[in-house]
């Protein structure tokens, strides 16, 4: 099967939903109301005639350096100039000192794998990807970074393995993010 023809979980979800819509629409046509029997129990269900799409718009004004850094191939965190506390994910404020006296620092691109999983049943918004492995890696500076690991078989991984961080373009969305790569 060629790559183009390969069915993703999203194709399956979408075709199930399409079948469901068609069934509900045909029921609505015959009854005049969007009521239909549950496939399993036969109980009467009503199909919501209003739809909502959720897509958030989030302020990154105070951490925009992080995203600019990704585009330059760097993973950045913040460091409090008063107490030297490192923050990843980066924070504008240091709750320890209750100050906002931060500087940007580049984080190590190497670390040790703490734990991992492979996501097989994916959320709808991730269902167009193949199964992906997510891991948490500890950097020498004592900070942990969660990201995908470039590996398809979880059995090839083990806690304690050395990992290297790469800034990558996530496709098909085409934006910069970061990923762990096992060090051979």
């Amino acid at each position: 099967m060629s790559r183009e023809e390969k069915k993703t979980l999203k194709d399956m979800y979408d075709s199930q939903m399409k079948q469901f819509f068609e069934f509900v629409e045909s029921m609505k046509k015959s009854l005049g109301v969007p009521m239909f029997p549950d496939m399993k129990s036969g109980k009467a269900l009503y199909f919501d005639q209003r739809e909502i799409t959720l897509r958030f718009i989030i302020s990154v004004e105070n951490i925009k350096e992080f995203f600019n850094g990704l585009a330059e191939g760097k993973l950045l965190g913040t460091k409090c100039k008063d107490c030297n506390q490192l923050y990843f994910p980066p924070q504008k404020d240091c709750p320890r000192c209750r100050t906002s006296n931060m500087e940007w620092i580049e984080l190590s691109k190497e670390g040790e794998l703490l734990t991992f999983t492979q996501i097989n049943v994916k959320p709808y918004s991730f269902s167009h990807y193949d199964d992906y492995i997510v891991g948490i890696v500890r950097l020498p500076e004592g900070i942990n970074v969660t990201a995908w690991i470039r590996e398809n078989d979880p059995k090839k991984l083990k806690p304690g393995m050395k990992m290297r961080l790469e800034i990558v373009k996530r496709e098909p969305e085409n934006y910069y993010t970061y990923e762990w790569v096992p060090v051979a």
Binding site: T117, P123, S125, Y132, A147
Partner: peptide, 18 residues
């Protein structure tokens, strides 16, 4: 979540692996 698409079983799987 935004970039790595963890699921609820996925979060606990991180604990199970460890």
């Amino acid at each position: 979540f935004q970039n790595f698409g963890l699921t609820f079983p996925g979060y606990y799987a991180l604990y199970m692996t460890a």
